[in-house]
Design a protein around this nucleic acid. Structure first.
Length: 111
DNA sequence: TGTGTGACGGGCG
DNA sequence: TCGCCCGCCACAC
């Protein structure tokens, strides 16, 4: 129907598809949505996901695999805690072997 | 209605 | 090789 502000909803759908023990980057999601370069919008969409349940925003990190948005969690340490529970190793707010556990939507979803 | 910000990424010096 | 700057697009004030 209306495809104007569905960007947020679309981001949520992709984030929900992220399997446990894996993580992706804002740019990867933006690229999958066709807005490659607008990685900021993905982060902004996550900002709106605060009241939306079912959004594993902790699995969405920056291109370095760093928990850039952990400060936006409640509490911030919650983000790292959740990732560790899923099997990811976090060190210095960064994912260990990031490239090994990286999950690309445009690649895994093959579309 | 217009300007500024923002959980980023890539290019250039 | 590292660091700095600009660009993107949507939402809030």
């Amino acid at each position: 129907m209306d495809k104007k502000t569905n960007f947020f909803q679309d981001v949520y759908e992709v984030v929900k598809l992220i399997p446990e023990g894996r993580w992706t980057s804002y740019g990867a999601i933006a690229h999958y949505l066709g807005a490659k370069g607008s990685a900021r919008m993905v982060g902004w969409a996550m900002n709106s996901s605060h009241g939306t349940t079912g959004i594993p925003a902790q699995r969405v990190l920056n291109r370095e695999g760093r928990l850039t948005g952990k400060h936006h969690f409640n509490p911030p340490d919650r983000m790292q805690k959740l990732l560790e529970q899923e099997g990811l190793k976090i060190k210095d707010d960064m994912v260990v072997d990031a490239e090994t556990s990286f999950w690309d939507p445009s690649k895994e979803l093959e579309f």
